[in-house]
Nucleic acid binder design. Structure first.
Lengths: 218, 218
DNA sequence: CAGTGTGAAGTTGTTCACAGCA
DNA sequence: TGCTGTGAACAACTTCACACTG
């Protein structure tokens, strides 16, 4: 009976839990700042302490990326950073269109953290004459009608919705109609799209609810 | 034996699950938009469909707010909205200070959704001469040094951090030193604070990780 | 029936306990 | 001893099954 070499046990797709997925970027940022302070290694207990979670949980999270720690020493920061970036695909460029160049839209356009994580916003759209044809962060703001044409010229799978709440659904409909595969909805409004479209909502009121709840009973 | 009137069975504190807490604001927004379309009642199955979750889960979530649905009819939108707003304390004003008037900070200051949910930003701070003493959304931008004085004049328990990542920790330290009870950290950087301080991180990279993960394997 | 409401079962995620290693 | 790594126990959350109600 041969069953030695447990080669790459978890690399096919052990279906990473969403909580793990959501914690990894936090670790990454932490590791990068440590590396800038010229640290080389870190142990799961130190990480756990920084994030106020259980060390074993950290170990399990990191194991999904395939990195191996060295006992007594910990994990190599360089390896970890490399592995997480790979794992989360932060190094593979993904083009995106942005809809709604209001305060939030502008902030995202000017923020270069997105680009550093692989998201390149290639065009942005609005419907207000006041912003159309202005330039934000080097990008011309197009009238929404031009989305159709541009979506054929520039390949992009991701649409970012930063419109007012009551425009979210119609914007989403448009994105789906013109072939977007994923929608990042910064509106608190829930949107309805076909099954296979990926939707992720970034809703600050969810976070606000948590803050207020904890505040009042402490 | 008298045990009729099951008065307010779950109002003391049945320790609402965090997932529930995070879904409620979504429901609220949905209900408000339905109400604007002159709808009066809604059933949990319709809600469930809009959010792509199980109807029973909706029922349980709503039960935490104390509302009762009427069989065959559903829940009264007006009652629901009132109850959720009460439950989440979105109608109780909570003062906040904001730190870091960059793109994101400005967007938050100009966004009136926060105020509509009870958060009143009463002052904002920065360290860059270029923004200090400018006015954003009717608020003067103060130099950080004045935080100490202002925190004594204006009561506020919540501090919002929208500084660059590498300033998050020192800002948090300052907030704690001057008595803030809660911190809303919009930085991806994890921050270390004393046990009893409430910290909530709004980290868009967590959402980004989810999007990219789902996109690549679909 | 078409809905709410709720206890039980099932699933997912986290923590514990301990084996292995330098 | 201090750390990784992992299977087992536990806790939290979600879904199921069904009683109940107009």
């Amino acid at each position: 009976m041969s069953e030695p070499q447990v080669e790459a046990p978890n690399f096919i797709n052990p279906s990473v839990p969403e909580p793990t997925l959501r914690r990894l970027p936090g670790y990454l940022c932490y590791f990068q700042s440590l590396q800038q302070n010229h640290l080389k290694y870190i142990s799961s207990s130190v990480i756990a302490h920084a994030f106020k979670i259980d060390p074993t949980l950290v170990t399990k999270d990191l194991s999904y990326t395939g990195v191996k720690g060295r006992t007594k020493v910990g994990y190599s920061l360089e390896t970890l950073i490399e592995a997480i970036v790979q794992f989360l695909k932060f190094n593979q460029q993904e083009n995106a269109f942005l809809f709604g160049v209001g305060n939030l839209g502008k902030a995202l356009l000017q923020y270069d953290g997105l680009r550093q994580h692989g998201i390149k916003i290639v065009a942005c759209f609005d419907i207000h004459p006041k912003v159309i044809n202005t330039t934000v962060a080097g990008l011309k703001v197009y009238p929404l009608q031009e989305f159709r044409d541009l979506s054929r010229k520039i390949p992009a799978r991701l649409g970012v919705i930063t419109t007012p709440d009551n425009k979210a659904q119609e914007t989403a409909d448009l994105l789906v109609a013109w072939g977007m595969k994923a929608i990042w909805n910064f509106t608190p409004q829930s949107i309805k799209v076909p099954e296979k479209i990926v939707v992720v909502n970034t809703n600050i009121y969810a976070d606000l609810a948590v803050i207020l709840h904890r505040l009042k009973q402490s």
